[in-house]
């Protein structure tokens, strides 16, 4: 249920009030950044978010409120990300190929187990194991897991962000969960 305050802001933003637009959309920026980050990778995410917001600003007067503002924004984000990948001749496959990882950055990463009590070490090991298993998954299944559980998106929002139907999201999520469990089981063996 949208509040009266939301309606006032959206009317103002539609009629050209950029401050009202900023107030409305700032709250969605972390989630939009996460979607862009998952779709195009860390280096281009900021550019995709900026393009998304500029397109949203231009298209807002035509926003008909049939979907939530968030879902609408994720659809734009998906389109911008796909344009971005197309323009660079990339596909949605790997956001960070191994050969693009700068070895100098590895030294900057903290050891997740450093100065932690044993319960925390176990948790840190679990995080490392899950991240390792995610890295082994194909892009489509990894992406749906990240959007669902790391970014807490609803099925409808994942469908908008990935440009697929809700049924496909459910199916991918189901298969991705099985796959992740299988990889983790194999890792333990």
């Amino acid at each position: 249920m949208e509040t009266a305050d939301f309606q006032t802001r959206i009317r103002a933003a539609k009629s050209g009030d950029v401050e009202a637009f900023a107030e409305l959309f700032e709250v969605l920026r972390p989630a939009t950044t996460a979607v862009a980050y998952r779709l195009v990778g860390p280096n281009d995410a900021d550019d995709v978010v900026m393009d998304t917001y500029l397109k949203a600003w231009k298209a807002l007067p035509r926003f008909n409120e049939r979907s939530s503002l968030k879902t609408w924004l994720y659809r734009i984000s998906h389109n911008c990300a796909m344009d971005y990948l197309r323009a660079r001749g990339r596909r949605l496959e790997r956001i960070m190929p191994q050969d693009e990882v700068d070895d100098r950055d590895i030294g900057k990463l903290e050891d997740p187990k450093a100065s932690l009590p044993s319960a925390s070490i176990e948790k840190a090991e679990m995080v490392t194991a899950v991240r390792g298993a995610l890295a082994e998954m194909d892009e489509t299944h990894r992406l749906v897991l990240e959007l669902r559980f790391m970014d807490d998106l609803s099925y409808a929002d994942i469908a908008a962000a990935m440009g697929v139907s809700i049924g496909t999201v459910m199916s991918r999520l189901f298969n991705a969960k099985r796959k992740l469990q299988r990889i983790m089981r194999e890792q333990k063996q």
Binding site: G16, K58, R62, R75, I76, N79, S165, I166
Partner: peptide, 12 residues
């Protein structure tokens, strides 16, 4: 401003 909004993705 006032460009056409992107075509909605057909969820169903």
């Amino acid at each position: 401003r006032n460009e056409a909004a992107p075509a909605p993705v057909a969820l169903f």
